[in-house]
């Protein structure tokens, strides 16, 4: 939870932050060039994913490879397009629920014997 990490800090720094408000709120940005480069990487990973899908020899390790590649795409979009790389105090607000959601998917799969 984003606010928690923020709030646990000493009273002094918090007061400074709240008073600083928007003056202190400088948003670092990736440039448009970075955005385009990321789009290219996303496209390439997608192409690789589809290629892996068609390679018979990789059928046994298809799932782990796909998981890694889609996780990479996920992190790129969330980190750069959604600014989470810069909005550090919003990370917990997303990754907390995401962790619980992922855990529930894995638990449901385990309950239905997926990993046996």
């Amino acid at each position: 939870m984003a606010g928690e990490t923020h709030g646990v800090g000493s009273g002094g720094s918090e007061a400074a932050l709240t008073h600083g408000g928007h003056e202190a709120h400088v948003e670092p940005h990736a440039s448009n060039r970075t955005y385009i480069a990321i789009a290219l990487v996303l496209g390439v990973i997608t192409a690789l994913e589809v290629m892996v899908f068609y390679v018979e020899a990789l059928a046994r390790v298809l799932v782990p490879i796909l998981l890694v590649m889609s996780a990479a795409k996920f992190v790129l979009v969330v980190g750069f397009y959604m600014h989470l790389k810069y909005d550090t105090n919003l990370r917990g607000l997303f990754f907390g629920p995401l962790a619980i959601a992922t855990a529930i998917i894995v638990a449901m799969m385990a309950l239905y014997g997926y990993f046996l």
Binding site: T46, E49, A59, L62, V63, L66, M69, S70, F74
Partner: peptide, 13 residues
Amino acid sequence: IVLFTVIYLMSGA
């Protein structure tokens, strides 16, 4: 991104 992987690509597994 997740659905494409889970629904479509993982059907190969």
